[in-house]
């Protein structure tokens, strides 16, 4: 498999850096556009639009952020907690803007499944349809996220 210079440079930006210890790709060997296409296909199969899922993710993130570290119920059996962190992180796509650090951990108490939401992660989904690579702590599995947030 060949890798175009732009893909190579994108993978470098999405890898570990001064801003992200583990990077955004995890252990995923797929090209970035393939990761995006696969996730969008998964969403399509679920009958969900990216906007619907993004809205629900943002609602959960905002609810946790507003609770200032106390657990908040997103829906019955699902809670979110916000963990603060100082500083800002730039978009690894180099498309402008820096984002608050801090993360909202959404937990499905029944199954123990978790979503780790960050402001930059949500922006990457919104701007690029990029849910991050498999193995990344911050990857959002679209189908799983839809289930946890009660969208299907």
């Amino acid at each position: 498999m060949k890798q175009s210079p732009s893909e190579k440079s994108l993978r470098r930006n999405l890898g570990p850096s001064k801003f992200s210890a583990e990077g955004f790709l995890g252990a995923d060997p797929r090209p970035v556009d393939e990761i995006v296409a696969d996730d969008l296909r998964t969403l399509e199969r679920s009958g969900l639009s990216l906007q619907d899922l993004l809205r629900a993710l943002r609602r959960a993130y905002r609810a946790a952020r507003d609770a200032l570290g106390a657990p908040v119920e997103i829906r019955p059996g699902v809670v979110a907690v916000f963990y603060e962190s100082r500083g800002r992180i730039p978009s690894p796509f180099r498309d402008g803007g820096t984002f608050e650090k801090g993360e909202a951990v959404v937990t499905d108490l029944g199954s123990g499944r978790k979503l780790v939401l960050t402001e930059v992660g949500l922006a990457l989904i919104e701007r690029h349809g990029f849910f991050q690579g498999r193995g990344s702590r911050y990857r959002i599995e679209p189908a799983e996220a839809a289930e946890i947030l009660g969208l299907k």
Binding site: R65, D66, L68, G69, F82, E84, E100, G102
Partner: peptide, 9 residues
């Protein structure tokens, strides 16, 4: 002094 969420609120 604190998280952006706390400051905003």
């Amino acid at each position: 002094c604190g998280s952006p969420g706390m400051i905003d609120a």
